[in-house]
Design a protein around this nucleic acid. Structure first.
Lengths: 338, 338
DNA sequence: ACAACTTGCTTCATCGGTTGTGCAATCGTG
DNA sequence: CACGATTGCACAACCGATGAAGCAAGTTGT
């Protein structure tokens, strides 16, 4: 590979055309694979390809996309990369996009509604073919922006009302997790009372669905859940630690934790108490799974969610359908007691 | 916001020009902020801006970039998103790029050398202004590709020999961590012997540097480290679990673990043994920090690394300089004994 | 009243590919 | 050998935004 001679300027199809003594359009056809259809001889094609190789030619996508109708760019906005769930979503999204010959662009919006819209606008400017908005605080606003630009959107993790959504079946999984914690609390601590629910915001769709599952499981056992047992103090670890500190006493030694972020604060606080406890968590983390007091973690099925997401993208579904994906409940530390 | 009427086609400056009865270049000047310099009246500017707003105009970046010299795109290739370290790097990179008005594009390459090169080629095609290659298996090959296209590169986390690199001071941090584990092993287990080193590949630059620090700390205490105490079995958790299983016996109850991924396997294996043990880990994870046997974790200074990275990008440094960033050693569970 | 500026625009070429259309040369057929 | 068909390519019009150059109308100075 020799560096190009015309220093500064990058090699273009016009340079290659001059080199192999052909027209730019022939070069273009060879380089984008349409040369057989356009009846370019194999001889010329070979010459072009060799010249492109030795010159280190790289197609100017800007120019290419400007002329073509579709960009093959698929955008994703995602709140954070800092936990396994969103990390896995980002990775799987990329892998699936690449498999399909698409160019994935992922933007992390820090749970900031303004950043979400700015990111969406930017992806529109890049003429993305579609946009997946993951855990967006205001998915409908994003959909509105995109619709105006003719870009289809899919809501992932958090549903919207103007575009198809793919979400976990939070309610069912929360019901199962609640039952597991109740059973293990009874068997391992002799505690039959209602659980404590910690983390999330009550206004948040997913927290709402999980809370419903949590309450259903209690009702099915004839257990009432007092209001003070539901501590929706936000997701942040510090908030949870503080909120627990504000409780007069630990009303329940068995706890339903709404996310791994929250769990960090919960465990820090519990460790300072001098009581036995058990918890389960709605989210998966391999190290959290190693904690002895952890009876189970809900693992959302990221593979299935992204398969479904791309299926929706490739379908004509433009309505506000909601696909609910079942979660996996990992039962932990069974048969261990202290 | 009314959806555009000319269904299908997106609004262009030509549409706006017709609407406000002006020329496309005037509209362009208004929309890219150069209108005062180009002596467009405020009256016309306001009319253009209003039309752009009601039409939901979004500039076609492809066309814009094609004409301009610089893309303001900064690329990053990164191996994985699935641990806190790389997750934090991706987030911080995005935040800093945005602060500077740049457009970050991050690509996850799954530690696959071919994918790395493909991703670099793609970013070259998008005319990125620069490329940060993080933890690349072959950073010099990426640099070579980029250099041919006139794109500058910076190596992050893993150094290369053809472009500036920003890396952690692995050797010093490994020395400190080794000393901590040796001290705590002595105090808490009464073990004075050499530690076990688990994880990583010996050919890997960072593992090499950490191994050096590990050995220096031992030498300083007059301790010899037998070859079988160094288990560089790769990073994967399953590999580590298997490699430990192959040891005739646990030669040392105090262990230096080379990464959190490896640690998952190590802890799974140790839990099945019926022995007391202690470990320290070169990497940070909040839940791993809660494990009682963990005496300390090295936390790489992602903030400082990315500050330095952008400083290098903005400087004229094109040589193969290497900036080493000090790590933080988090001492854990001190004063607890079982 | 006329030259010299200033103001506020418009015109047009350009960035690098893509693609419909056209045309000369070669081939096949009766 | 004449005629249509096929092969192999070149031409030129785009895609949408940008900015240098230019130009008409209004303003200022003498």
């Amino acid at each position: 590979m020799t560096r190009q001679d015309t220093s500064g300027r990058r090699t273009t199809i016009y340079d290659l055309a001059r080199l192999v003594d052909a027209s730019p359009s022939a070069v273009s056809a060879v380089l984008n694979g349409t040369w057989e259809k356009r009846r370019i001889s194999r001889k010329l094609a070979d010459r072009v390809l060799e010249a492109a190789d030795t010159q280190g030619y790289a197609r100017n996508i800007q120019a290419s996309l400007l002329r073509r109708e579709t960009s093959h760019i698929v955008g994703m906005i995602i709140p954070k990369y800092d936990n396994r769930y969103f990390g896995a979503i980002a990775e799987q999204f990329e892998a699936r996009a690449r498999e399909r010959g698409l160019f994935p662009v992922i933007t992390c919006t820090q749970r900031d509604p303004d950043l979400e819209l700015a990111a969406a606008r930017e992806l529109i400017a890049y003429r993305a073919d579609c946009l997946v908005s993951t855990g967006a605080t205001n998915p409908d606003r994003v959909t509105e922006l995109c619709a105006a630009a003719g870009i289809r959107t899919v809501n992932l993790d958090l549903p919207g009302s103007d575009a198809p959504s793919v979400i976990s079946d939070n309610e069912a999984a929360a019901r199962d997790l609640t039952n597991l914690i109740l059973d293990r609390g009874r068997d391992e601590l002799g505690w039959n009372g209602p659980l404590l629910f910690v983390g999330g915001r009550a206004s948040d769709h997913n927290t709402g669905a999980r809370l419903r599952g949590f309450l259903e499981a209690h009702h099915a056992r004839g257990l009432a859940v007092p209001d003070e047992n539901v501590v929706t103090c936000g997701y942040a670890a510090a908030k949870a630690e503080q909120a627990l500190g504000n409780l007069a006493s630990l009303t329940s030694p068995a706890i339903f934790v709404n996310s791994t972020i929250t769990l960090e604060g919960v465990v820090r606080w519990l460790d300072k108490q001098d009581k036995q406890y058990r918890f389960g968590c709605f989210d998966w983390d391999p190290f959290a799974a190693l904690l002895k007091e952890n009876v189970g973690m809900v693992q959302q099925d990221v593979d299935a969610m992204l398969d479904e997401t791309f299926e929706v993208i490739e379908s004509d579904d433009r309505g506000a359908s909601v696909k609910r994906i079942a979660c996996r409940l990992n039962v932990l530390n069974a048969g261990i007691s202290d």
